[in-house]
């Protein structure tokens, strides 16, 4: 039983420390809009990493089918019936304490392409999101703005 107590105490300390050091990274949590205004992305934290899912689409219906848009450009055929609304297009970001969330990926549903991605917070309401291939120089930066949900 003493061994369990020691493990529990050590684990508790570890998780508390992890929680405290990751608070700064939590500034990214919230609702964001890419510069083209076509979607709204909710960034949340799952475990120690940050993810962003599509929660709103300017044009939610597929013009051809008049049904909710699906991830039909995904190179993985098994994913092509997954609805875009709710789709996690930002994945696996880790905060590195330099105002930067990195080691993540961004998915472009319009092309079905997945890119490496790094996020910089310019100010508390503005993100520079850079998708790239291989090295950061081979990429493109988009500016996202923070949104606030109006209470009903």
């Amino acid at each position: 039983m003493k061994t369990f107590k020691k493990i529990f105490a050590t684990s508790l300390l570890f998780f508390l420390l992890t929680s405290l050091t990751s608070d700064e990274g939590d500034r990214i949590i919230g609702l964001w809009e890419p510069s083209n205004g076509k979607a709204r992305i909710k960034i949340e934290k799952i475990g120690s990493k940050y993810y962003g899912k599509i929660v709103w689409l300017k044009e939610p219906l597929d013009a051809a089918t008049n049904a909710p848009k699906l991830d039909k450009n995904n190179p993985d055929e098994s994913m092509r019936n997954v609805p875009l609304k709710g789709y996690r297009m930002l994945k696996d970001f880790i905060y590195n304490e330099k105002n930067e969330w990195k080691e993540g990926t961004i998915y472009d549903p319009e092309s079905g392409s997945l890119y490496s991605c790094v996020i910089n917070m310019k100010d508390e309401n503005t993100l520079d999101i850079r998708g790239y291939i291989g090295v950061k120089a081979l990429g493109r930066t988009d500016v996202w703005k923070r949104l606030m949900v109006n209470k009903k």
Binding site: K49, W56, R88, R146, V149, K152
Partner: peptide
Amino acid sequence: NSDSFAQQDSIVEDFSEYDNVTYTDTKS
């Protein structure tokens, strides 16, 4: 603290709440 459920949502989310929003700063 696990990331192992990062691709799944156990709760069905009401997306309609994101229809009505305001910019916290200025729209880009």
